[in-house]
């Protein structure tokens, strides 16, 4: 694979993740963004190393204050209860890349890899939410309350997004093959 092109692809997935945070499906009460969808796609299409790198840089850029997060950016994000999910994105992209490595990118593969990725995101996000609420913001919440607020409310929406990822993957993979099997190298 070509180095310059890899660099650019990582950059594009940073940009896509930033855009994903801003595309929202308008629903009554809780609008849902498509961000995780781009995280899963980064893992699937870029692989473990580049996928994780794109998410790592995304988070780093947001923390520095470059405007990539859903609400701007800045160091203050570390104190948001939801910051744990962003850490989860990095690991999830890596894990997903690891799972789909050297396998055919079909619906089933993409689906199960994304499910594992989603669990990784929750595994980072929920304890973080619990910690910030209890120790930084002084809001008392039980572990079950944290699971309910940080996972169960999002689970149905996230599963549907995974279904979208799984149906996208074979279609996209088929058509970017000429770009991946690089003509020039």
């Amino acid at each position: 694979m070509n180095k310059t092109r890899n660099m650019i692809l990582v950059a594009f997935f940073i940009a896509l993740t930033a855009i994903g945070a801003k595309i929202e499906i308008p629903l009554p009460f809780v609008p849902i963004t498509l961000q995780v969808l781009f995280v899963f796609m980064a893992g699937i299409l870029l692989g473990k190393k580049l996928g994780a790198l794109s998410q790592l840089l995304y988070v780093a850029m947001g923390l520095i204050g470059l405007p990539v997060f859903a609400k701007g950016g800045g160091l203050g994000y570390v104190f948001k209860p939801s910051f744990g999910y962003l850490i989860g994105f990095i690991l999830a992209a890596y894990v997903i890349g690891l799972i789909v490595e050297n396998r055919e990118l079909n619906f089933k593969q993409a689906f199960w890899a994304s499910i594992v990725g989603l669990l990784v995101i929750y595994a980072c996000g929920v304890p973080y939410l619990y910690y910030i609420l209890n120790n930084i913001m002084g809001v008392n919440i039980t572990p079950y309350g944290a699971v309910k607020a940080g996972m169960l409310t999002f689970l149905p929406g996230d599963i549907i997004k995974i279904l979208v990822v799984a149906s996208l993957t074979p279609q996209i993979h088929k058509r970017i093959k000429p770009f991946i099997e690089n003509k020039r190298m």
Partner: peptide, 19 residues
């Protein structure tokens, strides 16, 4: 790393327009 950040910033508006 810096180059990737710069490219990402540069292409957010472009990809958004594309969307």
């Amino acid at each position: 790393l810096a180059m990737m950040m710069t490219i990402a910033l540069r292409f957010i508006p472009t990809l958004l327009e594309e969307t």
